[in-house]
């Protein structure tokens, strides 16, 4: 279980507070207006921003003081998820060995992960020769092979068309969550909420308690009303 307890983060003048717990293997969507604090929340959990108060735990073990690379967390940014000078396979391999000293076992794992995201045989391609959707899949494959149980995604599919978005959401659910990863995804598209287990509404620096996607669809929180009317 990923627990975020009484977390308070400040980023310049902005302050964010959050308190929630997410079960392993679940897919949770964080939704709210821009400037509401979505990226701040991910930065704090990923370790790029220090927190002022509160705790973050995985499996009961606090990780709030660790460096970004030492947390049980993988992250998918809006862009720059792949090193452009490394092949797809090597980009995936970074999660297995950041020095890229890869064994034949590692290579087999990489090929397997690429197959799972639908990129079978494309391991030797450079990112520039892949489409935007394919690049996203390489990043998903990297998250899949990593040992880290929590996955943070910062509007990962914003640049994709509706069809590709749905495919990617299906992959996240069918491959990452199925493998036991706990996914926390920031989005501004209510449609993404439909495929999630839980939804966290985030506005004005305050994260609500997670509610089920069905409940969210039936009765969106009052606070987000203005956001949805747009």
């Amino acid at each position: 279980m990923l627990e975020v307890k009484a977390l308070r983060v400040s980023d310049g003048d902005f302050t964010l507070s959050a308190d929630f717990a997410l079960p392993q293997g679940s897919l949770t969507v964080v939704i709210g207006p821009s400037g509401g604090g979505k990226s701040t929340l991910l930065s704090a959990i990923a370790g790029f921003l220090g927190s002022d108060a509160g705790q973050m735990l995985w499996g009961g073990v606090a990780f709030g003081g660790a460096d970004p690379g030492a947390r049980p967390v993988s992250i998918l940014f809006q862009d720059n998820n792949l090193f452009p000078h490394l092949t797809a396979a090597l980009n995936v391999g970074l999660a297995l060995n950041p020095r890229l000293a890869l064994s034949s076992q590692d290579r087999a794992k990489i090929a397997d992960a690429l197959t799972q995201v639908g990129l079978s045989g494309m391991g030797d391609r450079l990112p520039a020769t892949l489409s935007g959707g394919q690049q996203g899949r390489v990043a998903l494959a990297r998250i899949l092979v990593s040992q880290r149980p929590v996955v943070l995604m910062d509007e990962p599919f914003a640049a994709l068309g509706p069809g590709q978005r749905q495919e990617m959401m299906a992959l996240v659910r069918g491959v990452l969550c199925a493998a036991g990863k706990t996914v926390l995804m920031v989005t501004h598209d209510p449609q993404d909420a439909a495929g999630a287990d839980y939804v966290i509404a985030l506005a004005d620096g305050r994260a609500d308690t997670p509610i089920s996607a069905a409940r969210f669809a039936a009765a969106p929180p009052e606070r987000l009303a203005g956001y949805f009317r747009k």
């Binding site: 992250i75 940014f77 970074l94 020095r99 890229l100």
Partner: peptide
């Protein structure tokens, strides 16, 4: 930089 840090790449790598 953020990607490298989140992948725990050591300085030499």
């Amino acid at each position: 930089g953020p990607l490298a840090a989140s992948l725990a790449m050591p300085p030499a790598a």
